[in-house]
Design a protein around this nucleic acid. Structure first.
Lengths: 187, 187
DNA sequence: CACCAGACGCAATGATTTTGCTTTAAGGTG
DNA sequence: CACCTTAAAGCAAAATCATTGCGTCTGGTG
């Protein structure tokens, strides 16, 4: 993560948790754009200077929270075949990421991220999930492309459109990308 | 563009030009991160409230400037064949966009862009350039993929890596993407 | 248990952002 | 060409936010 090398279990951890929770609550109550450091601090029961010292500014805090929020909380579903696994994952990915909240999180993760490590983490999450799906397929004896190929030709186009052309995105598009990569009749 | 429906030639236009110029100058003199609204206003010979009223905040201003800066200023080069035209364009695109300045502009364009219109404009620029290349190829009698395909499988992977995985990007990667889409021996 | 270092709270200071009101200038009209 | 309308800019006060020095507290360590 960006700069949280907190001592686990101590006061630092409590502050971090309470600040993150405050961001969540306030973001859903009054909208992400209404957030300010003093507001978050008050809700978290903390002084603003604490937030400024630990995170630097609002953007870095939001970036941190966004990455945490973008971490998949569950392994990809199993549907028996590679095409169905990958299609289901791509549809869910698109669904989650293209929502207004999802786009906001992605943008926040990209932002306030001088060294690019937060954005890199997001990409790593996706790569992990895809790797699970492909490894499963290989173990079943299916022929599977490698992770980089899936990222280039499924994840990247989805993300590109989410960020740059939010209009006209639907599950059918995600399915087409998967089909194109696996070959119309499987790889 | 985002909110600039200025009367051309009037005072508004002068203010816009001078503010944009001030952003350029200050960004190169003291670094993009050192910019503040009052600073830009002073350099532009304008009061801060003018900037706040017209652009809302620094992010939206930077987003506007970034889009202007990302507009291609020249038509894609002609090299005689589709593969060479597209390869050259992709290499140049990667080169410009993956530089620190390029990444900063892309991020700025994505940011402060509530409705996504600035980001959409960036995508439209790329689509335009690609369309020129593909149309030329078609007129020469070459078989060419459509713009959407090139965006999905060349532009999107490049942009994804620029934003999310800045490491390990080189011209060879751009060439591979183009080759993959045109077919190893041409389409 | 006493110590050390890191993290937090508090409060003062400085910078930025917001806002009401006034003034200017562009574009249209008689 | 002079006049009118209106959007946009200037100005200045008020509010909010960001920064920083210093003292206090907490949790880990010897």
């Amino acid at each position: 993560m960006s700069r949280q090398m907190v001592r686990p279990g101590g006061r630092s951890a409590r502050v971090q948790a309470s600040v993150h929770a405050a961001v969540h609550e306030l973001a859903s109550e009054m909208g992400r754009d209404a957030l300010t450091v003093p507001l978050v601090a008050q809700r978290a029961g903390v002084t603003p200077s604490t937030i400024y010292r630990r995170w630097g500014d609002l953007q870095e805090l939001l970036s941190d929270v966004a990455v945490e929020r973008l971490r998949p909380d569950t392994a990809p579903g199993e549907h028996g075949t590679l095409p169905s696994d990958l299609t289901a994952w791509a549809e869910q990915f698109l669904d989650e990421m293209s929502s207004p909240a999802g786009r906001a999180y992605i943008r926040d993760a990209l932002l306030g991220d001088p060294d690019g490590s937060n954005a890199g983490q997001c990409s790593a999450y996706a790569a992990e999930q895809i790797d699970v799906i492909l490894t499963r397929a290989t173990e079943r004896g299916e022929k599977a492309p490698d992770v980089e190929t899936v990222i280039d030709h499924v994840v990247a186009p989805l993300m590109y459109r989410i960020l740059f052309r939010p209009a006209g995105l639907d599950a059918e598009y995600a399915r087409r990308l998967v089909t194109a990569i696996l070959g119309p009749a499987g790889p």
